[in-house]
Amino acid sequence: MIDYHFDWSVIARNSDKLIDALILGLWLAVVSLAIGSVIGLLAAYARVSGKWWLSRPVWLYVEFIRCTPLLLLIFLIYFGLPEFDISFLNKTQSFVVSLSLYAGAYMSEVFRAGLASIPKQYVEAAKAIGLRPWQRQAYVILPVMFRITLPSISNNLISLFKDTSLAAAIAVPELTFTARQINANTFRVMEVWLTASALYLVTAYLIAILLRLLERRYAAIR
């Protein structure tokens, strides 16, 4: 370690690759959060539906995801689906499917808590002006729930962004995979991993700040 001489030129030479990889990671996180939110919302409604044939399978899905490692899910989908002749997914798409399913399980719990915490009085006011059930959801319950759950959604986005590093395991060229490749070609271990860490840290922190601004804007409305 004492003999280690830092040579940061390796980073400058590979900066394009690293930035592209970072952007891919961000994109993977945002897309998975978006798809996961849709899955999560449907799952949350299924959980609160009071119909066992809807809530039971969803409960199984949520517990399966929560109690198994994400990496396992990634392998299961990437290596498993082709065994069933489902091979139209490339590795990036396959990873998005995994991360979205993973996000969906966590988002369903966020939304379930959010739906449960909507004050009854808003629902009654919505009923009293004659809004139909779906209108009450669309114009009152969901907008209020979104504001209540925004801090949890922010946390999930940051977690998902960090979890995109697991895509390296199936050779999706995101930041961790790219850093490992540069590392393998240049043997500049510390420079590359420190830079990758710094990029994760700064990006995650910027996301947190941005979302906190958004939260503040909406928190005032509650």
Binding site: Y122, K127, R132, V144, R147
Partner: peptide, 24 residues
């Protein structure tokens, strides 16, 4: 049906103790 009940409610206004304005 819920649709019919909603239509009936639209003909009756209600003001609540806690105001119940939509916060958003």
């Amino acid at each position: 049906s819920e649709a019919k009940v909603s239509a009936q409610r639209a003909r009756i206004g209600m003001v609540f103790q806690q105001f119940n304005l939509f916060p958003h």
